[in-house]
């Protein structure tokens, strides 16, 4: 049976492939897959126009489960593969699915360079702070001191902060969401897809086998209000069960204040502006971390800049117009030639 994408609107399940999903039961990846299908359906991107490219790891099995085009690549290289594809085919909606190990450890180099080039890709990084597929070694986002199979005495590596790393490379769209916040997650994916230029989305993802509860502070009903700050463009940064707490900018750093205490009013709080050109404030927000601070979710930054593949295509177009002479014969006869009778 074929679905005529021209007339019948696509539903989330139309994006599902016939492959059996093989993640562990209860894994956060299921939720991301479900919300991705919802987001694609909301955007009504024709299935044949979507390409999902991944590296290696649990998250990287993602492309097999969608009835779109896809490449399950090699470890860490999804962003590079996607860059080539997008340059060759700017007409496609290209997604990079990666994890903390894949994207930030072995693929760290491509992560930085893909972002600084501003290739129009949607990079979704499933951050579970552990190596899942290889059964539980420390990852580049694991906390300092974390005990894992490869760090029985506790990790002595300082973790990398994905949001800060992306902002350091001046990503034009940076967001964070959580696997269990399904509506928020779908909404962020939609916004990422709509952004022209590189979009980076970090998803807090629970690996219930090797790192269960890593984000309990952000997902547990009792705790989450104190530990999560939902960023909304144009709104003051307020959090806490009763909206009693907020974030204030003071002396070049951010601090938590309580509204009504010490004369603090809502007017003293930072108002989120995701379109701010300078990424410094977004960087400060990206550095806020549990337990001292609530961790922001939502869109940290969304600014517009020409995208890489567009600039590349424009140069080719300009060369064609300016130089002309683009036939094979012109090529072979470039430079000095001489004739032998």
């Amino acid at each position: 049976m074929t679905v005529d994408s021209q007339t019948t609107p696509l539903s989330p399940k139309d994006y599902a492939s016939d492959q059996h999903v093989r993640w562990c039961p209860g894994c956060g990846d299921y939720s991301i897959l479900a919300q991705m299908k919802k987001a694609l359906a909301e955007l009504q991107i024709p299935k044949e126009k979507c390409v999902f490219i991944s590296g290696i790891g649990c998250s990287s099995r993602f492309p097999y489960y969608l009835d779109t085009y896809g490449i399950h690549g090699i470890h860490g290289r999804a962003a590079a593969i996607a860059t080539g594809l997008k340059m060759a085919r700017p007409d496609l909606s290209v997604w990079v699915i990666t994890g903390d190990g894949d994207g930030l450890s072995i693929g760290g180099n491509h992560f930085i360079h893909t972002i600084r080039r501003n290739v129009d890709l949607n990079i979704v990084l499933f951050n579970n702070r552990i190596y899942g597929l290889t059964k539980g070694q420390v990852s580049p986002t694991s906390e300092f001191g974390k005990k894992t199979k490869s760090t029985p005495w506790g990790s002595v590596d300082n973790p990398v902060r994905p949001i800060s790393a992306a902002l350091g490379a001046e990503a034009t769209f940076v967001a964070r969401t959580i696997d269990t916040h399904v509506k928020h997650l779908a909404n962020i994916l939609v916004q990422a897809a709509q952004h022209k230029g590189v979009s980076f989305v970090e998803v807090y993802q629970n690996c219930n086998i090797f790192n269960d509860g890593a984000y309990l502070y952000a997902t547990d009903r009792q705790q989450k209000f104190d530990n999560v700050l939902e960023l909304e463009h144009g709104k003051p940064m307020i959090f806490g069960k009763n909206g009693e707490k907020g974030i204030r900018f003071k002396d070049f750093h951010l601090e938590v204040v309580t509204i009504g205490e010490n004369g603090v009013t809502e007017n003293d709080l930072l108002v989120h502006d995701e379109t701010r050109k300078d990424p410094s404030l977004a960087f400060l927000l990206g550095n806020l971390s549990y337990p001292e601070f609530p961790e922001p979710i939502g869109v940290f930054r969304s600014v517009s800049k020409p995208s890489y593949e567009e600039l590349v295509a424009n140069q080719i177009q300009q060369a064609r117009e300016k130089i002309g002479k683009n036939e094979l014969k012109d090529l072979l006869y470039t430079g000095d030639t001489w004739v032998v009778e």
Binding site: R77, A80, I81, T83, G84, L85
Partner: peptide, 23 residues
Amino acid sequence: KNFGVTTFQAEDEIAAICAAIGA
């Protein structure tokens, strides 16, 4: 480029071949 050639100076050798595979 006037012959429609797309070139990509990648961040490393691996990215160079991977981008080519994507293309």
